[in-house]
Design a protein around this nucleic acid. Sequence first.
DNA 1: CCTGAAATGATCCACCC
DNA 2: GGGTGGATCATTTCAGG
Lengths: 157, 157
Amino acid sequence: MDQVDRKIIAALRENGRATYADLGRSVGLSASSVHERVGKLEAAGVITGYHAMVDPNTVGLGVTALVGIHPTDTATEDDVAEALGALDEVESCYAVAGDEAFVVKVRVATVDDLEKTLGRLRRIPGVGRTNTTVVLSTRFEGRPNNAGLDEGRNGDA
Amino acid sequence: MDQVDRKIIAALRENGRATYADLGRSVGLSASSVHERVGKLEAAGVITGYHAMVDPNTVGLGVTALVGIHPTDTATEDDVAEALGALDEVESCYAVAGDEAFVVKVRVATVDDLEKTLGRLRRIPGVGRTNTTVVLSTRFEGRPNNAGLDEGRNGDA
DNA sequence: CCTGAAATGATCCACCC
DNA sequence: GGGTGGATCATTTCAGG
């Protein structure tokens, strides 16, 4: 992982559909070389995938909430996480330090759906109290964080 | 936005580098038609971009935290949000209901860096107390939520 | 929405540094 | 070990219908 890889990664975070030719131009390498480098980055698990971002509002998902999940001791964390993953409306799931076991991000169409989802969450074995924070507006999200890319910091891949 | 568009969107969420030819095959249309549809979806703001996902651990960003930000009345929400956006390590920023004004997701290399970042956050005018939740593990994140795509629900684009 | 064709890019390989 | 350049094949991106 050298500076060129970092540039390629940054570029692909910006535009995941950039062509190898384009990438080559912006880092001063041939398309073949970039192609090979990207392949290696993918194989090494540095680049885990490419995804289109969709404005949730335009697809009828206008309600976002962050839900803290307090555990009971009736199920393992892994089992709870798996059950959370089975719910389509749970977009992200973090195991956290503190008195909550997980924080999940939930995306639904209406507050009615949010209520239903919270019901489903609480019905999961191992889930106790939930603490819901409704998102009023998403100022920005999933922004490329190049802190680890710009600097002389080196990852362990 | 018909069923075909929804399928295309779902496919591009899965694989943002899918070729129009591939997409065409999977929805039963020609590549040209898919190309035109995708162009319209982009123009309509439904698809907001394509981004490579990077495993944070492999690029030296091993520490994630969710930080709740309590407001003071010395700055507007917009100004605070802008200041938060100026920090590279703040990956996402949500304005929320409740006694916190914002919840942000922060990604840094070490707990030392986390401490520095929290210092920076608290130095922002309009930011009062912060409440930090350290992420122990990310079970899943930014998962395609097709709740609004599978069903007969219609978005407003 | 399709076909068809020209331009561009992807992909592979022999070769070079 | 990378990197290059060219050949070949696929895809993009227009026209036009």
